[in-house]
Write a protein that binds this DNA or RNA. Sequence first.
DNA 1: AAACAGTGCAACCGCTCTGAC
DNA 2: TGTCAGAGCGGTTGCACTGTT
Length: 346
Amino acid sequence: MGRSPCCDKNGLKKGPWTPEEDMKLTQYIQMHGPGNWRTLPKNAGLERCGKSCRLRWTNYLRPDIKRGRFSFEEEETIIQLHSVLGNKWSAIAARLPGRTDNEIKNYWNTHIRKRLLRMGIDPVTHAPRLDLLDLSSLLSSPQLNLSSLLRLQTLVNPDALRLAMNLLSSQNDQNQLFNFDQLQSQQAPVIQPNHFDNTINQQIPSNDLTTSSFSNQSQSLQGNMGHFPVGSSNSCDQIFQDNLKSYITTSDQSLPSTDIPSFCYEMKSDSLSDNSSFDQSLNYSSSSTNTNFSFDSVLSTPLSSPPPLNSVSGLINVSTEDERDSFCSNLLRFEIPGGLDFADFI
DNA sequence: AAACAGTGCAACCGCTCTGAC
DNA sequence: TGTCAGAGCGGTTGCACTGTT
């Protein structure tokens, strides 16, 4: 049973393709069409593995491939899609006509990823890298108290918070010791039904309701909130979903800058793979209002140090609206299409 | 001008999934 | 039903090119 081996790798050529090989492959596919990669090399007179032929064709020789530099709109789209899809290069490429997954992957790794890192943004989670923040400045804040620490616990890497609390306890004049684990147990019932109602009842300009901030925050939290007690009960899940729908569909309401929707914690990029409604929703238009964002403008800010704590939009007390908009919010902002059904992602 | 470091990208590797046998 | 090749995918490598010292 089964099939004979695809190809005998011994003796097959590897490495860069010559123009002659490209011509042979192109001419053969133009005559016979792509497919049946197993027999193609032999029929086309190529001493290559079928897999190599397929890669050469799909990544380089295909006539519909767009060569050259990525446009700003393409770059922006890649970042936005990556914030939702992660390293699903093929899924990203499917939404960028003329671009291959390999090309996008290379462009991400060589350009975009480095830019995000220089900006202090984790290219994996699209979140500000809280691990780089200066904890000493946090600890010196007059606003720091047990309450704020409890709040922080839901937002930052637990290890980082543990370190902060250890430092704080060592600084405390009254020698008041904090027990992280104890705090964690006290903090367990974080998601409460009223939380959502209170959240939605607060007013924020409608243009703040963007999937960028949404997905950005959700992914950042996913990355940082490995210990967050989510999904502890079915009823909580149901409340989460109901309120998420309310949040999405209530166009003139959004979240206060200091109050991240807890339901974001449940958003998982894995569940955002190929999805018809999502495909339709991501018919991204470069003529949207989002084209104001510029990497250069962001990069013009000093890069020698991590972003200040108060510029971490939505995570920790943000002092002004401008500060909130200045850093993260613009980075990945794009409008929520009307037909976007986030319930499918949950 | 040479040596070195950094960058960009084509191509390969290895894995998983799917469907034919 | 199990095996295997085909196809697809993400990660990695190798090399040519460019910039810097």
